[in-house]
Amino acid sequence: MKPNTTIVADARKTRLSPRNRLDWYLLAIVVLISCVAIIPFYLLVLLALKSPIGGLAAIRLMPDFHFVNFITAWQRSALGKAMFNSLVMTAGGVGLLVFLSSMAGYTIARFPGKLNRTIFTILLLCMMIPGIINTVPLYTLLIRLKGINTYWAMICVMAVNAMPFAIFLYSSFIRAMPVSLEESAIIDGCSWFEAFWRITFPLIGPVTSSVVILQGLGMWNNYAQAVFFLQDKAHRNIPLSISLFFQQYGADWPLMAAAAFLGLLPAVAAFLVFQRYFVEGITAGALKG
């Protein structure tokens, strides 16, 4: 029996293999592409670890391991404070976004009355408008609301810019879910509001993680709004701090490289740790959208 099953397995394998086979040229292409992806990062590290001796002309493929650059860059760029600011605003923005959008998506999916349909249509149209278009009027609005250089205004603006997409994602996901669980909770005496938070919300974890990852990353990396609404040193986020550091230390390349490396580290670390969720979140977000 045994040889026979191998043959069957082999036959199945060969039938599928023309597109699965690993050829040498394929390997070469993969290696080449990986190099294109990784070399800039390697050069960045090389530059960030460069000791002042011999200047840049003395750069070798082996790093100098001049780690002092990182300490100096960290101190001079005030990146610690910037990371704290980014964390507060991203967490606040994502929290607000998930809280409001999940509720809105739920209502829109479950009670498609005139009001909810109108709201949904408006949101869909706004999905195509990049937040940049609003900057000037928004700036004057935030001056009047005393929102410049505050966490809350930046949190609201970032959450609002991400809202159409998040609500769209939530509503299309909830629409595909059976309503029976919520109904049985309502028979047991829950209100729809309670039914949503107790029954539905725990079941839509995949959408929530997609929203958290996609939009959270966008908020973490935000520059276009930060550059206008966060002007004082105490509220700057990471991208803003890095760009200002570059303007300030425009001659000290190793120091600039070290600061940029520190600036990209949190996002990269989060990506490496939660890689699976990133890929799942992006595909779920994309294919639903």
Binding site: S101, A104, F111, L115, C126, G131, I167, F193
Partner: peptide, 16 residues
């Protein structure tokens, strides 16, 4: 519960 989209929409209206 039919108006659970309103908090989101009000904030959206104000800032967008």
């Amino acid at each position: 519960h039919r108006y659970m989209a309103l908090p989101a929409f009000l904030l959206f209206s104000l800032f967008f």
